[in-house]
């Protein structure tokens, strides 16, 4: 574009605009690059943590304030799905749902909280179970993280395992990856940066590494080919990784069920598909296993 017909003031403004926008682009690219390279304890993560802590009270208040809207919205979307699946039952559904909406939400919440209270009793010695509400979700569906209303003041530290409850069972859903005084960020197992050393019940002690392959789907690699594995076998945390290193997760936390087994005749290991017990998208509450004993704190310090 030629600037020959512009006044000097306009030319200066064009130059200033280009400089400002160019500077902003450089800052954004540098921030993106540095943030991706640094660890969770890096300075930019620290700034993010402080900002998250500052906004926590606001998120808590907003979360409570919009709860009725959220519930109504959930009811509305459920209704749309039901109509898609069974339009011929729409009238009956309408009547039933009107009745259900009045009492279902409260009952469902109580049921989930009750499940959360009963799971994980074997870890009571090493961990405090800290119930936490999800107060912030990622404003983009591409990131598998949430913010909870508990932090270091409640004993929640980085690498604390996080459990959730759902209709089909309860189990591990993620790990704390950032922790501030009054809030923390939980990364779900579906985050590709997360991997868990697991064992499969009835597999003669087969140990493998659980990793996400797609949203809602996981694979376990490294299981010896001779280990007898069948669909429906439960998957638990192993307490250590495939190479015998200590894991941040204590042994015995349920994660999901085997849904597929694949092995070739010449393979020495087999790859197993797993479906998790808990879909984190539907959760409103979580339980954080806050390390209490020296052993548990050592686990959390595992790099």
């Amino acid at each position: 574009m030629s600037n020959s017909g512009q006044t000097p003031l306009a030319q200066r403004r064009v130059l200033a605009r280009r400089l400002i926008i160019g500077g902003l682009v450089v800052v954004c690219v540098m921030t993106l690059s540095v943030f991706a390279r640094e660890t969770n304890s890096g300075p930019l993560h620290g700034v993010q943590n402080i900002a998250g802590t500052v906004v926590t009270p606001l998120q808590e208040g907003t979360s409570r304030a919009i709860a009725p809207v959220r519930n109504a919205w959930g009811w509305f979307t459920d209704l749309l799905h039901a109509r898609d699946r069974a339009t011929q039952l729409a009238r009956e559904n309408q009547a039933l749902r009107t009745e259900l909406v009045q009492g279902q939400f409260g009952a469902e919440e109580q049921q989930r909280l009750a499940k959360l209270a009963t799971i994980g009793s074997e870890w009571r010695a090493d961990y405090s179970q800290v119930p936490a509400a999800i107060i912030g979700r990622s404003p983009s569906p591409w990131y598998e993280q949430v913010r909870i209303d508990k932090g270091t003041n409640d004993g929640v530290i980085v690498n604390s395992p996080v459990l959730g409850a759902a209709d089909v069972g309860a189990g591990l859903v993620g790990v704390v990856t950032q922790s501030g005084p009054v809030s923390a960020v939980v990364s779900f197992l579906s985050d590709p940066r997360t991997s868990v050393g697991v064992t499969i019940v009835n597999s003669d002690g087969g140990i493998g590494l659980l990793q996400p392959t797609a949203p809602g789907a996981f694979s376990i690699t490294g299981i010896p080919a001779q280990s007898p594995i069948a669909n429906g076998d439960p998957v638990m945390t192993a307490g250590f990784s495939r190479f015998g290193l200590q894991s941040i997760y204590p042994r015995g936390i349920p994660i999901g069920l085997i849904t597929g087994v694949g092995r070739g005749e010449v393979d020495v290991t087999q790859t197993v598909q797993m479906s998790p017990f808990v879909n984190p998208d539907s959760l409103a509450y979580l339980v954080v296993l806050a390390p209490k004993s020296v052993l548990a704190k050592q686990r959390a310090m595992t790099p």
């Binding site: 902003l24 690219v29 993106l32 943030f35 983009s140 990131y143 993280q145 949430v146």
Partner: peptide
């Protein structure tokens, strides 16, 4: 900075 997003700078660049 405020939401649990796994990046810093990416959304800024996009909205810019």
């Amino acid at each position: 900075l405020l939401a649990p997003v796994g990046t810093l700078g990416a959304l800024a660049l996009l909205y810019l």
